[in-house]
Structures are given as structure tokens and as C-alpha cells.
Design a protein around this nucleic acid. Structure first.
Lengths: 240, 240
DNA sequence: CGATCTGTTGACGGCAGTCAAGTCAAGTGG
DNA sequence: CCACTTGACTTGACTGCCGTCAACAGATCG
């Protein structure tokens, strides 16, 4: 057996894509073949992954880190349309290009597949295509939820919604020494202006609303981008 | 041959779903089988198609008319997340339910397939599943474009964008008698408050911005919901 | 012809955007 | 080790866009 493949399978062992993402649709034999066409690429924070309207040669899955997908209007206004974390997928199959721009928000590792070979695999493994369809449907649902936020929610509700979403995706529960109670801590990963792009507002307003949520005692600040959720029910209420 | 099927195939002959939608992926033999599990259902304007979080027994394609998909917040605020016209599809495969509400905006005819039998067909005809995947990807892209509109565009840009989208989807070009030039006429289908739900604003603001676009000479009003686009480049500019 | 639904326009106020100053933390170089 | 710079974040003052409330105008229909 080839050393590279062994190493590849080794990394798959701890990969979130393997266990809850696309690769979960594959048997270990299939995975071995799948892995043979993949390679891992690393990106620094702020580094471009693909440009708007660029025909990307790769389809990829997020292995580690956070990826922003945004659209920039002619005058510089910017709106984030996707925030990808492991085990989400990035890239468009079947040859269309999109007017969106992908960028590493943190240090990122992507598991990349050449586009045409990935598409062949899709034909060969129906379960894989099935899985991709299901993930796309889920993404469409979240995009629609996000449309509700952008179209109808107030600034405070938007920020509360963000904390709620991140709390459900990325928290680690830790003992609170003073109370002996467990609290969910979460990491924003993004700067204030990136959050603003995500929520469709300005970074000053993001600041003010984070402060407001603290004053109401729903969250507490542990670091610039680190918070703990004090009252998740009240937060959910505040999110609408 | 069964009379119902004959009639069914007859109607497929003029169906947009057949020619540019899902059914385009099928051969005529396959279509005959597909058609045998379908039935046409009619809805009046304002009639509910499915409720939020309801597990719908049908997957369907829009044959005629316009369908709104909306989410309603606890306090009555409402946001449209999809506006479906022939040959778009409606409904969620693979058993998830969604917190969205579908309603006929005009008189609507839906070509309905029992959900489980439709899912079986998807397995049987890979081209059909392929087609569904591609349509879903396109829908995700439009949802993202919509997020940009909701998050970052001004009231005037939103209304201009709406006219632009409808101009590209549903116009009929007619001779302008006075100028001898051709103009695109379009039909809004929706009431002002429905447009407002679509654009994430109030219906009063929609009115004002429509008036503003008329005063700028970009569009002219032919009827309550009927307009013609005078200057499509300027409109495109105004849309951002 | 009145009732009702839909669309238009005006006056006013508030939420969030803009502009600006200031704080804080983490480098960097002397 | 300290002055200085830089980038990220916070807070304040003011403004303006758009939402709210309200009156009115047209259209449609029994």
C-alpha cells in the first residue's frame, strides 16, 4: 500500500467531513479511491480562495477553519452570503460560475478535488450525489432563514440570532467556577466588521448591540471574540 | 391506453416543466410513466398550499401561476423567501419539513407527485435527480443574490432590482405606437404589500419608490400591476 | 350606489447609518 | 524597557432613510 494513501486515510480518521459530511456517504473502499484524487491545501486568514465569477478548478470540503463567501457591490458595500465550517462544502459543480467571492476567515485547510474528477465520482457513487443533494437542500433552507433575518429582523435580533447559531454549532461547555453551573462558550472567529457584513449592518451597530446584550445579562464577554451564553432561552427570545 | 394518461400527455405538450424544467430530463417513455403518478391540482389566489412545518405529501412543479413561499415571525412580520413560477418546483424531498409557508399568489395549477413515489423515481432515473440537483443549486444562487439585496441595498435599488428580475423572466415585448420602438412590458402579479414582503420593506415605501422610478422616467405605469421598462440600462444602474 | 379592497401621498419619529474621537492590545524598533 | 505605531474595538453625537400612522383616491363588485 502506498504511503501517501495511508497518510491520507490517517487524516480522514479525524476528519469531520468523513464523519458527518460528504464522505460519510462512502464505504471505506470507496473512500480510499476518493482520497486518492484529493489533496489538502492550506490558506492564511484573509487569503483569497476563489474570485467572483472565477471558474474554479476545485471542489472542496472544509477540513479545518472558517471560510467566508461574500458578494461585493460596485461601491464597496459587502454582504456575506455563506459562512462555511467543517464539514461544509465549497465550490460549484457542473460548470456554472458564481458572482461570489470566497476567502479564508481564519487559518483554513481545504480537502480539494479536481472538479471534473469529482463530477465523475458523483456519477459513479450515487450515494455521494444523494448526499450532495441533501446538503444543498439544507443550505438552501439556511439561506432562506438568513433572508428572514436580513429582511425583517432588528439589529438586536440579528446579533442575538448570530450568537444563537454559533452557540448551536461550535460551543464547548465549561464549568463556571463561581456558580458551579455549566455555560456555553463560543468563539466568533470573525472581526466586528465581518460580523457586520454577515448581518447586513455596520460594525458600529454590531458593537452597540453586543454591549446591549451584555447589559441585559444574556451573554458575557470572555475575550474580544470569545463569549459565554448566560441565558440561552432569553437569547432565543431576543432573536425572534 | 388509458384516457387519463392521454389527456395527461396532452397537457405535457404545452407544459413549461416539460420543456425547460424537471421533466426535460426524461425521455418520452419515461415521461409517460412519470405522468401516470402525477395529478394536477388547482388553487385560488390566497389559497394555502402547505403550512409552515407541515410534512407535505406532495412534491410538485408549478404548471401555471405564481406561488409565494414565506416565513411569518411570531409578531406578524413576514418575509418572502421564494417566488415560484413555471417551471419551478415546490416541496422538500427526503422527509425534512421547513418552517415556510406556501400560498398561491395568483390562480395556480400544480403538477403534483406523491412524495414517496417521486423519491423512487429519483432513484430510478439518475438524470432526473441530476436535474433536481442543478435546479437546487441555481435556487441557492438566487437566494444568495437575494440576501445581498436584503442586507445591503436601498429601497430604490430593491424596487429597481425587482423590476429587472421580472423583466428578465416574464416580459412580452410590444411595439410602442408613439415611438415605433419596442418596449418590455411586465406584470407584477403581486399586490404592493406582497412586493413589500418580498423586498423586506413596507408597502408604503414600495409605492413611493415605484413613483420615484416613474418620475425618473425609467418605467411607465400601464395598469395597477402592469408596467413597461423604458430604459433598461438606467434601471440596471439603479438596481446596483 | 355604498362597501371593501388596493394603491397613493403626506407628516412625523425612531432605528440604525455616518462621522468622529477615544480605548485597548499587540507588535516593532530604538 | 519604553515610546510609538497599528489594527481592532468601543462609544458618542448627529443625520437621514425608511417605518408608522393617517387621510384620501381609485377600482371592483354585489
Amino acid at each position: 500500500m502506498d504511503a501517501e494513501v495511508i497518510q491520507g486515510l490517517g487524516r480522514c480518521g479525524t476528519c469531520p467531513v468523513r464523519h458527518s459530511g460528504l464522505c460519510n456517504a462512502l464505504t471505506s473502499d470507496e473512500l480510499a479511491r476518493f482520497k486518492s484524487i484529493a489533496n489538502l491545501r492550506a490558506f492564511q486568514p484573509g487569503e483569497r480562495i476563489f474570485l467572483s465569477d472565477e471558474r474554479s478548478e476545485f471542489f472542496s470540503a472544509v477540513f479545518t477553519g472558517v471560510v467566508k463567501v461574500t458578494k461585493i457591490l460596485f461601491d464597496g458595500r459587502q454582504q456575506m452570503v455563506g459562512l462555511l465550517m467543517p464539514p461544509d462544502c465549497l465550490g460549484r459543480v457542473y460548470g456554472r460560475t458564481n458572482p461570489f467571492f470566497a476567502e479564508a476567515a481564519t487559518q483554513v485547510e481545504l480537502c480539494c478535488f479536481p472538479r471534473d474528477r469529482f463530477e465523475n465520482m458523483l456519477e459513479e457513487f450515487p450515494d455521494l450525489k444523494q448526499r450532495l443533494l441533501e446538503q444543498t437542500l439544507d443550505e438552501l433552507d439556511s439561506a432562506r432563514e438568513w433572508m428572514v433575518l436580513l429582511g425583517r429582523k432588528t439589529a438586536e435580533e440579528r446579533v442575538a440570532s448570530l450568537f444563537l447559531i454559533l452557540a448551536s454549532r461550535t460551543t464547548t461547555t465549561v464549568k463556571d467556577q463561581s456558580l458551579g453551573a455549566e455555560r456555553k462558550t463560543l468563539e466568533l472567529h470573525l472581526r466586528r466588521d465581518e460580523i457586520a457584513d454577515f448581518l447586513g449592518m455596520t460594525y458600529e451597530t454590531v458593537c452597540r448591540q453586543i454591549t446591549a446584550l451584555q447589559k441585559q445579562g444574556l451573554i458575557t464577554k470572555l475575550g474580544r471574540r470569545r463569549f459565554s451564553v448566560v441565558d440561552i432561552d432569553a437569547l432565543s427570545q431576543a432573536a425572534g
